[in-house]
């Protein structure tokens, strides 16, 4: 669908080359090599834009990227193509975004893995190697137990965890992933110790909780919601600044005295040396997209919580996140 919007490219009008313009062009090319930023910014976007998704098609990040690509291509009048570069838990894609030509024609989706993969030592690239463009969505998580578990509140759960350290099992989606980090964050905040059990993805942890093989799981709210509604699981608390609209009775951890600031977030980034004017332009475009009805509808379907931040806010957020992660890693 994105492909069909390429007409705008040709309509941009190309002049017939004259000798002077060719010489000028060569000179410009020479200059470009020395100072890439200024000249390119004027003609941007001059060709289709690539939006690199470091994850496989069909997942939440991919769906978000495709919805964004639709909105951006409407605004820029050039096709914005989603390119999936899955591998290494995002590392392959991140490396590709980082090393792309910084001419404003390559964007990419950034996730918490740019911080965690770096801290884990599997990726040299850090969040500082990107030009942060905008934050798009932040999804919070919830701590769930079986519906017939003895813990009715977070306080009871934490009391037990304090009484017998390292025995209550908490399932997470992956070692070092955001759910695991959130559990670590809770441990730090409440001064308790639990037993972290990593799974291959959040849903697998939910199944094992349903079967009673683990005591609890910190997991995506959207993924857990059906089991809360069907009465099989109980959610003790959600992370994040406010209660989840569809679970009005579940308190936030902040209300209970444990403000936790780790979430599954998705933002847009570009190669570090991209001209700042282009970054600003895209950041504005993402802001417009984040308010578009079609985009919001698509996000609602996948259960993503849209939260826009501009380039500098996003940059601050990243720095703050790294601080938090460093503490609990």
């Amino acid at each position: 669908m994105v492909m069909n919007k390429g007409i705008g490219l040709r309509a941009m009008g190309r002049k017939e080359p004259t000798r002077r313009s060719v010489i000028a062009g060569c000179a410009a090319a020479a200059l470009t090599m020395l100072a890439p930023t200024n000249l390119m910014a004027q003609e941007w976007p001059s060709r289709p834009i690539e939006l690199v998704v470091p994850f496989a098609p069909g997942g939440g990040t991919d769906l978000l990227a495709r919805a964004l690509a639709d909105e951006l291509s409407k605004q820029f009048k050039v096709p914005v193509q989603v390119v999936n570069r899955a591998g290494g838990g995002g590392v392959v894609g991140f490396e590709e975004i980082k090393s792309a030509k910084p001419d404003g024609h390559t964007l990419g989706i950034l996730t918490a893995q740019i911080i965690t993969a770096n801290l884990r030592g599997v990726m040299q690239t850090s969040y500082k190697d990107f030009a942060p463009v905008a934050m798009l969505s932040i999804d919070y998580a919830g701590l769930s137990v079986q519906a017939d578990a003895k813990w009715k509140t977070l306080a009871e759960f934490l009391d037990d965890a304090k009484a017998s350290p390292g025995t209550i099992t908490v399932g997470n989606g992956s070692q070092g992933g955001s759910f695991h980090m959130l559990a670590r964050n809770l441990e730090e905040a409440a001064g308790v110790q639990v037993k972290h059990v990593p799974f291959d993805g959040g849903p697998a942890a939910i199944v094992q909780l349903l079967g009673g093989h683990i005591d609890s799981t910190i997991n995506g709210i959207t993924e857990t919601l059906p089991y809360i509604q069907s009465g099989q699981l109980r959610m003790l608390a959600v992370s994040g600044p406010k209660r989840y609209p569809e679970l009005p009775d579940v308190p936030t951890s902040g209300e209970l005295g444990y403000p936790l600031d780790i979430a599954t977030w998705r933002g847009v980034g570009m190669p570090k040396d991209t001209p700042p004017e282009i970054v600003a332009k895209i950041s504005d475009a993402v802001a417009t997209a984040a308010k578009a009805d079609t985009f919001l509808a698509a996000m609602k379907k996948i259960g993503a919580n849209v939260e826009y931040m501009n380039s500098s806010e996003f940059s601050e957020y990243l720095a703050k996140q790294e601080e938090i992660y460093k503490k609990i890693f």
Binding site: A86, G87, G88, G89, R120, D200
Partner: peptide
């Protein structure tokens, strides 16, 4: 899966998965 460490990847990102 259990520790999140890369094993036998020879530093090649394509082998991380």
């Amino acid at each position: 899966v259990t520790t999140g460490q890369a094993r036998f990847t020879l530093g090649i990102p394509s082998l991380l998965d």
